[in-house]
């Protein structure tokens, strides 16, 4: 076999593997959507679930998923920005920072069910937050923070050190250089990572089963006072999310239309996660163009 034939063979093998993967993914997606989409109506998206009769929706679960997501991101985005900026721009190379880096790496590879049990012991039991949005948001933060931090650090580290020197040589402080020059240039990468992280959080079930809980009490969408017990915003109420709901129906659902509800919920979940991924790409590219080529005022 000569080099040319080898090349052809190798290319052929790679193409086959790639198309196999795409085929599996596409059929999976098609299966879920074909099964689930017929069920997805406005009614399905807005009504509460029913435990014993047919015709339940996923309204509360959907709201819970988004609310938890927002809370979790509100906590983890600033923390990961701070930690990532510190690690990339300020931390000296020594045993302490390398220990921190290693810990973050280990944390980011922990299975989510382990993180969930940790959250159960700490937030639910120890801190007595109970099965609640708050416990869920905190555990999602623990779950998401290591990855977000690494993403921020790596996005910043990918900006050439010549840019930092350029800023410092103009008499800018390190903080100004980082926040005004380096972070804006890294923003597309950072944003993409954040949105992908949001998608991961949105689809997460295992970490939430024992923290945000498996029940979705009825909500009173007319009262938004966070201290009111049935308020959608109350952070101390249990909150089953969409992903947990799917798991729940499939393991112990007894409503007559359990299969259809699960399929519909799965379709909604998949579409949401897809939207996160697509918007991450679009947003990243859009931001990159905006940051690099527009005549936006720098102040």
């Amino acid at each position: 076999m000569n080099v040319k034939q080898q090349d052809k063979l190798a290319t052929g093998v790679l193409y086959t593997i790639a198309s196999l993967i795409i085929l599996v993914l596409a059929s999976l997606l098609a299966f879920i959507l074909i099964q689930g989409l017929p069920r997805v109506t406005w009614h399905f998206l807005t009504t509460p679930a029913r435990s014993f009769e047919a015709g339940g929706g996923i309204g509360i679960q959907l709201f819970n998923s988004f609310y938890l997501l927002v809370l979790a991101m509100l906590i983890s985005v600033p923390l990961s920005l701070g930690a990532g900026i510190y690690l990339s721009e300020y931390a000296k190379k020594n045993w302490l920072t390398s220990l921190i880096r290693t810990s973050i790496e280990i944390l980011s590879s922990l299975p989510s069910v382990v993180v969930g049990l940790f959250g159960f012991l700490i937030f639910v039991i120890q801190f007595k937050f109970g099965f609640s949005i708050l416990s869920g948001a905190l555990v999602l933060t623990v779950f998401n923070l290591p990855l977000l931090t690494r993403n921020v650090e790596e996005s910043l580290a990918s900006i050439s050190s010549m840019q930092r020197e350029a800023g410092l040589a103009l008499g800018l402080s390190r903080w100004e250089t980082v926040t005004r020059i380096i972070v804006p240039e890294a923003l597309p990468g950072i944003t993409t990572g954040m949105i992908l992280g949001a998608g991961r959080v949105f689809g997460e079930a295992a970490a939430l089963i024992y923290t945000a809980g498996q029940s979705a009490p009825a909500l009173d969408f007319t009262n938004w006072n966070p201290f009111y017990i049935a308020s959608p915003l109350n952070p101390l109420r249990p909150a089953e999310t969409l992903a947990v709901h799917i798991w729940k129906i499939n393991s112990e659902g007894i409503m007559p239309d359990a299969v259809a509800v699960s399929a519909g919920a799965s379709a909604v979940l998949i579409i949401a996660v897809l939207l996160f991924n697509l918007s991450a790409r679009w947003f990243g590219q859009h931001l990159y163009q905006k940051m690099t080529s527009s005549g936006k005022k720098g102040a």
């Binding site: 010549m162 020197e165 100004e176 804006p184």
Partner: peptide
């Protein structure tokens, strides 16, 4: 001030490259 061996303009407009530091 300092000018480096390899050009290192900021990923900003020409105008902003010059005015950025003076503005700060």
């Amino acid at each position: 001030g300092m000018v480096f061996q390899r050009p290192n303009p900021f990923a900003k407009s020409i105008y902003d490259n010059i005015t950025f530091a003076p503005q700060r």
